[in-house]
Design a protein around this nucleic acid. Structure first.
Length: 219
DNA sequence: GGCCAGGACACCA
DNA sequence: TGGTGTCATGGC
């Protein structure tokens, strides 16, 4: 994939949708929790769960570490898969305490190279959740790939349909300048594009980035 | 009333 | 190692 293509797709998306203001979270820890809660779940449902956690004043590493898992599950119920996610949040917060004394600032000091594999080793943290945490909570320059990214960029022939996560990620990271702000905005814009214009129907002509970027200067 | 959402994991061949 | 089932709520 050519550099100018990815950069210009970004410019085009930005022009249409404007800044997305991601990630919608008040603190890095809240962003981290949101990354788990939003797994295969609409963000509106995640918001309800986060409101519950905030209302109960358990949206801190210490409080979440101390809360009973059954109570946690009840609070995050609106986000769906609540039993699964309660377990995953517990694993994640346990990891945060074991490795960084419950302090995200300590975690942030570690390099991506060593931190990413560690995070991926935590139960319930797959590649997308991991990279969302790295980028949006810890402000590390890591490009997040999600279902929309795969769908959109494979449909227009930019990538193979079943391209592995890391492979597609490296396409973006090799071709784009290493910038937290750019990665942040680009991923958010792709999600917006996917929601607005791209349907799961593979025949949908409107969904394709190529179609979207028909204008000569974006080819 | 069915489909889908900002995934990950367990299980099986 | 790749495919399939499971986890679940809420909006449209």
């Amino acid at each position: 994939m050519r550099k100018y293509l990815l950069v210009n797709i970004y410019k085009r998306l930005y022009k249409k949708f404007g800044p997305r203001g991601w990630w919608p979270g008040q603190t890095p820890f809240e962003v981290m929790v949101g990354a788990v809660l939003t797994q295969n779940t609409a963000w509106t449902n995640v918001e309800k769960a986060i409101r519950n956690l905030r209302r109960e004043k358990v949206l801190t590493p210490a409080r979440l570490n101390g809360i009973e898992i059954s109570k946690l599950a009840l609070l995050i119920r609106p986000a769906g898969y609540f039993n699964v996610k309660a377990k995953r949040l517990k694993s994640l917060v346990g990891f945060l305490f074991n490795e960084y004394k419950g302090d995200l600032r300590r975690m942030r000091r570690e390099s991506i190279k060593t931190l990413r594999p560690k995070l991926l080793g935590v139960h319930g943290v797959g590649p997308e959740t991991c990279d969302s945490i790295l980028l949006y909570a810890l402000e590390k320059p890591v490009f997040v790939i999600d279902a929309y990214t795969k769908r959109i960029f494979s449909r227009c022939g930019v990538a193979k349909e079943n391209i592995p996560y890391e492979e597609l990620q490296s396409v973006f990271m090799k071709e784009l300048p290493k910038s937290v702000r750019l990665y942040n905005e680009y991923h958010a814009l792709i999600v917006q594009f996917g929601k607005d214009l791209c349907r799961k129907d593979p025949k949908c002509g409107q969904c394709c980035i190529k179609e979207f970027c028909k204008n000569k200067k974006f080819r």
